[in-house]
Nucleic acid binder design. Structure first.
Length: 115
DNA sequence: GCAGTGACGGATA
DNA sequence: GTATCCGCCACTG
């Protein structure tokens, strides 16, 4: 729990305001690209940890697949729109424009919060 | 120890 | 582009 989960949380917490990423991107960053499910599963437990902007994590299609886990099915969309991310039909519009890849933005630097 | 499941993704048809 | 299947790793029953 302090291994894989912590990794996912670290990456998710690095997601800047108004940006979003995908489970696969995080998984790939964690060298577990084949196990994108694990990321999503870890996110399921993310609500146990504070400061985890899980709403900024969507699936490859930019779809708010996990919105149902926020307590309110519309909460996730509300937060995204509140951050300037337009959401239509439970999917992020201009997704590629808001897309944030940890493997690029973090330049493959694991756990380096010096910046 | 085995089987089922999961906030996914990629490949194939 | 859409639909279906399989693989992936970890956890629970």
């Amino acid at each position: 729990m302090d291994d894989f989960f912590a990794r996912v949380y670290e990456v998710v917490k690095q997601i800047p305001y108004g940006r979003v990423t995908t489970y696969g991107a995080i998984a790939a960053y964690l060298s577990a690209k084949k196990a994108a499910r694990m990321v999503g599963w870890a996110m399921n437990a993310s609500h146990l940890q504070p400061g985890i902007p899980a709403h900024r994590v969507v699936n490859r299609n930019g779809k708010l697949t996990g919105k149902m886990h926020f307590g309110s099915p519309d909460l996730m969309q509300q937060i995204l729109e509140n951050e300037g991310v337009k959401v239509t039909d439970d999917a992020i519009t201009n997704f590629s424009r808001h897309f944030w890849d940890p493997a690029i933005e973090l330049t493959m630097q694991t756990g380096n919060g010096t910046d």
